[in-house]
Amino acid sequence: MPRYEFRCRACGDTFEVNRPMREASEPTDCPQGHADTVKLLSTVAVTGRTISTPTPGPSSGGGCCGGACGC
């Protein structure tokens, strides 16, 4: 279940709420009981594996000056 971060405008407390995505924009009270809260924009870090292909070097025979272009 997604976690959303809110901030209370009355007391300044920042807190998180777990709720379904369909309820993401619904208002919520802060833990102190204040109703004047705002949902914060959160950033999500997604990490993964990057697969890189090695670039041909001058002695690999690929690309210009690899012998095929005549330079």
Rank of each mutant, 00 (worst) to 15 (best):
T47L: 11
E16N: 10
G63P: 01
V17S: 02
H34S: 08
D36V: 07
M1T: 15
G61M: 07
F15M: 05
H34V: 05
G57H: 07
S60D: 15
H34I: 06
M21I: 09
V46L: 03
P56L: 06
D13N: 08
G12I: 04
K39D: 01
S59T: 13
T43D: 05
H34N: 10
T14M: 06
V17H: 02
E26C: 06
H34W: 05
L40S: 04
E23G: 00
T55C: 07
R3F: 02
G61F: 08
F6G: 01
R7Y: 05
V17L: 12
G48E: 11
P31S: 07
G67L: 09
H34R: 03
T50V: 15
T43W: 09
G63L: 10
P31A: 09
R19S: 10
R19M: 08
C30E: 00
G67W: 01
S52R: 13
R3K: 15
C8H: 00
T50Y: 04
P27Q: 12
S59D: 12
G57K: 11
A10G: 04
S25H: 12
D29N: 13
F6N: 03
Y4W: 14
E16V: 14
T47I: 10
H34M: 05
G61E: 09
G67C: 03
G12L: 10
H34D: 02
Q32G: 04
A45D: 11
G12Q: 01
R3D: 02
P58R: 12
V46C: 02
V17T: 03
C8I: 01
C65A: 07
S25N: 14
Q32Y: 05
P54V: 09
A10L: 02
C71K: 08
R9F: 04
H34P: 00
M1W: 05
I51P: 00
T47D: 04
M21R: 09
S60Q: 12
S52W: 03
A24M: 14
A45L: 12
F15A: 00
D13P: 00
E16D: 15
R19N: 10
V46Q: 03
V17R: 01
L41S: 13
F15T: 03
S25V: 04
P56M: 05
G57R: 13
A35L: 10
C69V: 07
S42Q: 12
C69S: 11
R7H: 06
P31I: 11
A35T: 12
V38N: 06
G61V: 10
R22S: 15
G33N: 07
P27A: 11
T28A: 12
G61Y: 10
E16C: 10
G61D: 08
G57W: 03
R3C: 11
G12V: 08
K39S: 08
C30L: 06
A10P: 00
E26V: 14
L41M: 04
P56R: 05
T53S: 05
T28Y: 00
E23P: 01
C8Y: 00
G66W: 06
C8E: 01
M21Y: 07
M1V: 13
R49H: 14
D29W: 03
R7S: 11
P27Y: 01
S59E: 13
I51L: 14
T53E: 12
S52H: 05
A24W: 10
C71G: 13
R3N: 13
D29S: 14
